[in-house]
Simulated scan of single mutants.
Amino acid sequence: MFAKSTFFLFVSSFTTTVVVTTCFSIPDVHQHIQSTIDFASTIHHTANVNENANSFTIASLTESFDPLSGYKELLKNHPLPTKMMTGATLAVCGDAIAQTQTATKNDEDEDSVFEYDKARGASFAVFDMAYRALQHFAFPIIVATCHGQYLGSILPDNNIIDTSQLAAMEQTLSSQLGIVPFLYYPAFFTVTGAIQGLTSSQALSRAKENFLPLMKRNLLFWIPVQFVQFGYIQEDLQIPFLSVAGLAWTFILSVYAGSAKTSVAPEKEMQNAVQEILDSDSTTTNVFDSATLVPANATATM
Rank of each mutant, 00 (worst) to 15 (best):
G121M: 00
T190W: 06
L242H: 05
K261Q: 11
T199G: 15
N272I: 11
N297D: 12
Q229I: 00
T102F: 08
T89H: 07
T89D: 07
V228Y: 03
L237R: 04
G193I: 02
S123M: 07
D109K: 06
F10C: 13
F137V: 09
I252L: 12
R120L: 06
A98Y: 02
N159G: 07
I43M: 12
Q275N: 15
M270C: 10
I252C: 14
G193T: 01
T285E: 12
T292S: 14
P266V: 08
M84N: 05
S205Y: 03
S205W: 00
V113Q: 07
I233P: 00
F7K: 11
N159P: 05
S55R: 14
F230K: 09
S280A: 14
I223D: 00
K83H: 15
F8H: 13
I43D: 15
I26H: 13
G152V: 00
S174L: 05
A138G: 02
K72A: 07
M129C: 09
L155M: 10
D111Q: 12
K118V: 10
S254V: 01
S12W: 11
L293I: 10
S164E: 07
N158Y: 10
Q271L: 11
Q234F: 09
L278K: 07
K216P: 13
S60C: 12
A40N: 10
V274P: 02
A203N: 04
S282E: 01
Q31E: 15
S41M: 12
F2M: 11
N210T: 13
V18G: 09
A138L: 06
Y256T: 06
F127L: 03
I179R: 01
D289R: 13
Q135G: 11
D28N: 10
N50W: 11
I195D: 00
V294W: 11
D128T: 13
A168V: 04
S64Q: 15
M302I: 11
F139D: 03
S13D: 15
F137T: 08
V49Q: 15
Q196W: 05
P67Q: 02
S55Q: 14
E73H: 15
F127Y: 09
A144K: 12
T301D: 12
I252W: 04
F182G: 02
S280Q: 15
Q176I: 02
P266Q: 03
N159T: 10
H136M: 07
D236W: 01
A168P: 05
L247H: 07
K208G: 13
L75F: 03
D162H: 08
